[in-house]
């Protein structure tokens, strides 16, 4: 066990965990931030996605030891108070969620994509979102919501 200082949603947090602990479990078990979800633990489903230095990253694959000194944004850090991020707004506009479990990961990847590429083509949207599994099959709406968000940005 060692102490790690993490910058999460612009706050410095200290946790005392094993160095190989994935950021996903640090967020959920130690910081009580439940927005990043556990779906597979092997980087296949995208449910655990957070932004690390602005880039969509699978937090189940990122050991805490490699996350120190980097800027972590979770879905809890997207909105500014009552003001939702345009991607969150677009998700509500299209009422994308069914069970909703995959959606926070999908939203974080979309935010990461649009921050680098505000006007993605269909192919670019697909390439970015293809790492996610939505078991409920909301892909048609996710595609629309990403487009709507890109218009809002």
């Amino acid at each position: 066990m060692s102490v790690f200082k993490l910058k999460v949603n612009n706050e410095i947090k200290e946790v005392n965990v094993a160095p190989d602990t994935p950021v996903l479990w640090v967020l959920r078990d130690h910081l009580q931030l439940y927005g990043a979800k556990y779906g597979c633990g092997i980087g296949q489903c995208g449910a655990c996605t957070v932004l690390v230095d602005g880039v969509g990253t699978r937090s189940c694959m990122l050991p805490v030891s490699a996350a120190e000194g980097r800027d972590i944004t979770t879905i809890e850090g997207l909105a500014e108070g009552d003001k939702l991020h345009p991607v969150q707004e677009a998700w509500l506009e299209h009422d994308v969620s069914q069970c909703g479990y995959c959606q926070s990961g999908q939203i974080m990847t979309a935010v990461g994509l649009l921050s680098k590429n505000p006007q993605p083509t269909d192919e670019e949207i697909e390439a970015a979102m293809n790492g996610h599994i939505c078991r409920c099959g909301t892909y048609v709406r996710i595609r629309k919501a990403v487009k709507t968000a890109s218009q809002k940005l």
Binding site: G35, E76, L84, Q88, L92, D95, S97, Q103, S104
Partner: peptide, 21 residues
Amino acid sequence: TKNVDGPKIVRGEPLYGLDYY
């Protein structure tokens, strides 16, 4: 009518069994 849990879902609030603490 929009999903009543929609706003909580897009904010990543703890709603699911796995989030219970």
